[in-house]
Simulated assay, not measured.
Amino acid sequence: MAYFYLVLAVMAETVGTSALQASKQFTRPLPSALVVIGYATAFWFLSLVLRTIPVGVAYAIWSGLGILFIALIGWLVFRQPLDLPAVIGMTMILAGILVIQLFSGATPH
């Protein structure tokens, strides 16, 4: 169940961060409300995750996946460019998440 909550936390954080871009520095009410709701939801689910998964591992996975999803949304929705070094760096982040999941004894299996 912890990984399900972690996925929900990442999704909520992704919505909140995407809405932050759309809020235009909190000048647009609906995206601004989504920022607050998204981040509050993300931290609530993350708190549930921490019952089972160590904070360092949970945060590494949460932030790493958040980086990947936000970069993808930035590229697709906001037309923000991603150059080769950015793609390589994000690929390395994904590889790090996979190493943690597949080989670390700090994660529940």
Rank of each mutant, 00 (worst) to 15 (best):
M1K: 14
Y3S: 08
F4T: 13
Y5L: 06
Y5H: 14
Y5M: 11
L6F: 05
L6M: 10
V7Y: 06
A9Q: 09
V10L: 02
A12W: 03
E13H: 00
T14G: 11
V15Q: 08
G16R: 07
T17F: 00
T17K: 06
S18D: 00
S18M: 03
A19F: 07
S23G: 08
S23I: 04
K24L: 11
K24R: 11
Q25D: 12
Q25H: 05
T27W: 01
T27Y: 02
R28E: 01
P29T: 13
P29C: 04
L30N: 06
L30T: 08
S32D: 04
S32T: 08
S32H: 03
A33V: 12
L34W: 03
L34C: 10
V36R: 05
Y39L: 03
Y39Q: 05
Y39G: 07
T41M: 04
A42W: 02
F43H: 07
F43T: 01
F43Y: 02
W44F: 14
F45S: 09
F45M: 05
S47A: 10
S47Q: 06
S47T: 07
L50D: 02
R51P: 14
R51C: 11
P54Q: 07
V57K: 02
A58I: 15
A60F: 03
I61E: 01
G64R: 05
G66C: 08
G66Q: 09
I67M: 06
I67T: 00
I70L: 10
I73S: 11
G74M: 04
G74Q: 05
G74L: 01
W75S: 03
W75N: 13
L76E: 11
L76N: 08
L76C: 09
L76M: 12
V77E: 12
V77H: 11
F78L: 07
F78R: 04
R79V: 04
Q80G: 07
L82C: 10
D83S: 09
D83W: 02
L84E: 09
L84F: 09
P85G: 07
I88T: 12
I88H: 06
I88Q: 11
G89V: 09
T91I: 15
T91A: 15
I93G: 08
I93Y: 04
A95L: 15
A95N: 04
A95T: 12
A95G: 09
G96D: 03
L98S: 12
Q101F: 09
F103P: 15
F103D: 15
S104F: 01
S104R: 09
G105F: 13
T107A: 15
T107V: 15
T107C: 13
T107L: 15
T107S: 14
P108L: 07
H109G: 11
H109F: 13
